[in-house]
C-alpha cells in the first residue's frame, strides 16, 4: 500500500514534469531556468523518496527518486548558467551530452563525479557526443 501511494505521488509529479519537458523540446520558448513547477517538482520528489524509503523494498526507488531530485536541481542551475532551456526533463546521459556539445567539459566532469558515472561509461558518452558535433580535434585530444 505504501508503494502504491508513493507511486501515485510519483505519477502526480511526472505530470508537471511531462509538461515541463514539452517546452524544453522547443528551446527558446521557455525562459531558461524558470521552470514554473520546478520547486514543486523538487518537493514532490523528496516526498516520493521518503515514501519509497518507508516501504518494504522501495530502497532503490527511494534512491532513484532522490537522485532524480539532485539531477533536476543541477539541470536548473545549468540552465540559469547557460541561459538556454535545454536541460530540464532530459536524462542524465542527455545532459552530459549537451554539456559536451556546448563545449563545457568542466560541467560534464562535475556531473560525472556527482552521479558516480563510471569511467568507461563516461568515455562512451563523451566520445559519442564529440562525434555527433564532428569535433574531430576534441576526439583526437581525448
Amino acid at each position: 500500500l505504501e508503494i502504491r501511494s508513493a507511486i501515485r505521488l510519483e505519477r502526480g509529479i511526472s505530470m508537471p514534469d511531462a509538461a515541463a519537458s514539452s517546452p524544453a523540446q522547443a528551446p527558446g520558448t521557455r525562459r531558461a531556468g524558470a521552470d514554473t513547477g520546478s520547486l514543486q517538482a523538487l518537493q514532490c520528489l523528496s516526498r516520493a523518496s521518503d515514501l519509497f524509503g518507508q516501504s518494504k523494498d522501495g530502497a532503490w526507488q527511494a534512491k532513484a527518486a532522490a537522485e532524480w531530485r539532485t539531477l533536476r536541481q543541477v539541470q536548473g542551475e545549468l540552465e540559469t548558467e547557460k541561459g538556454q532551456a535545454v536541460f530540464l526533463g532530459t536524462s542524465l546521459a542527455a545532459t552530459v551530452r549537451k554539456c559536451i556539445h556546448l563545449g563545457d567539459r568542466r560541467s560534464a566532469n562535475k556531473l560525472r563525479d556527482k552521479f558516480h558515472i563510471s569511467e568507461r561509461r563516461f568515455a562512451w558518452l563523451v566520445l559519442n557526443a564529440l562525434a555527433e558535433i564532428k569535433d574531430w580535434d576534441g576526439l583526437e585530444a581525448f
Partner: peptide
C-alpha cells in the same frame, strides 16, 4: 537499473517498478 535511469531518464523508475 541505475544505467537505465541515467540513459533513458529517471522517470522510468515507474516503468521499472
Amino acid at each position: 537499473r541505475r544505467e537505465v535511469l541515467h540513459t533513458y531518464g529517471h522517470e522510468h523508475v515507474l516503468t521499472l517498478a
